[in-house]
Simulated scan of single mutants.
Amino acid sequence: MEEAYKISDPQVLKVVAHPLRVRLLGLLRSDGPATASELGRRVGESSGSTSYHLRELFKYGFIEEDDERRDGRERRWRARHRYTSWNSRELTGTPEGREAVKIMRLRQAESMTRIIHEFDESAWSPEWVEVAGVNDHFFQLPPAALTEFMARTEEMLRELEARYAGTPDTPHVHVWVGAFPRVPKEER
């Protein structure tokens, strides 16, 4: 699997920003190859609906057929990239690009909300219950500081993943990092 799908076309970002496509792509990335029927059961959609959206993801290069695990009756699909990225400054140069970035940010927030809602404390050890959650910090920082923070955070997460590889009780973990400037009080 390739590392990243870097998007520079707002139309392509809008393709993946569809709510069902975001979920399907996320499931293929986190759970591995699956058929349209398997994915349909996971998301509560018909296999016809999931098939259509999988074909759209395929058409734009987000997923590919998994020939290694081919099911005789149905195609198995797998993600081509670990994650999707884009440069917001580049994409927001047009109204279409601003709309696509806004939609994708909202899809990310929806995904985070769904995962928080699905987290069941009774199903996890006390150690997991203690560390699971979201923090809300408030700092005064320039764009350069946030750029550095994002880069160092990703570097640290990759280092920790490598260090703890193979450790028992090591599931996939959703980690969100986000920052937005706050509108000054006098402008609210």
Rank of each mutant, 00 (worst) to 15 (best):
M1A: 08
M1S: 11
E3V: 01
K6N: 15
I7D: 07
I7Q: 01
D9A: 13
L13R: 01
L13D: 01
V16Q: 09
A17H: 04
A17K: 03
H18K: 04
H18M: 00
P19F: 02
L20R: 03
V22C: 09
R23M: 10
L24Q: 03
L28H: 01
R29V: 15
D31R: 14
A34S: 12
S37P: 02
L39M: 02
L39S: 02
R41W: 05
R41I: 04
V43H: 01
V43L: 07
E45I: 07
S47L: 06
S47T: 15
G48F: 09
T50W: 00
H53F: 08
L57H: 02
L57M: 00
F58C: 04
F58N: 06
K59Q: 11
K59N: 08
Y60V: 03
Y60F: 15
G61M: 12
G61N: 10
G61P: 10
F62C: 07
F62W: 02
F62V: 00
I63V: 15
I63K: 09
E64R: 08
E64P: 06
E64Q: 11
E64T: 10
E65R: 12
D66I: 06
D66Y: 07
E68W: 09
R69G: 12
R70H: 07
G72A: 03
G72K: 09
R73T: 08
R73E: 15
R75C: 03
W77Q: 11
A79C: 11
R80E: 08
R80G: 05
H81W: 15
R82V: 00
R82G: 06
Y83H: 13
Y83L: 11
W86T: 03
W86E: 08
W86Q: 01
N87A: 07
S88Q: 07
P95W: 04
P95L: 08
G97H: 02
R98G: 15
V101M: 01
K102C: 08
K102V: 15
I103L: 12
R105P: 11
R105L: 15
L106R: 15
A109P: 05
T113S: 12
T113F: 12
R114K: 13
I115S: 13
I116R: 15
E121G: 10
S122W: 00
A123K: 13
S125A: 12
S125Y: 00
E127M: 10
W128L: 09
W128V: 12
V131L: 13
V131N: 00
A132M: 02
A132Y: 00
G133H: 01
V134N: 11
V134A: 10
N135A: 15
D136K: 00
D136Y: 05
H137L: 14
L141K: 02
P143E: 11
A144D: 14
A144Y: 05
A145M: 09
L146Y: 13
L146P: 07
T147W: 08
T147G: 13
T153G: 00
T153H: 13
E154H: 13
E155L: 06
M156P: 00
L157S: 01
R158V: 08
E159I: 13
L160N: 05
E161W: 09
A165S: 11
A165D: 14
A165R: 12
G166H: 03
G166A: 06
T167M: 15
P168Y: 11
D169I: 05
P171Y: 04
V173N: 04
V175W: 07
W176M: 15
G178C: 05
G178K: 06
A179T: 09
A179N: 02
P184V: 13
P184F: 04
P184L: 05
E186S: 10
E186Q: 14
R188W: 04
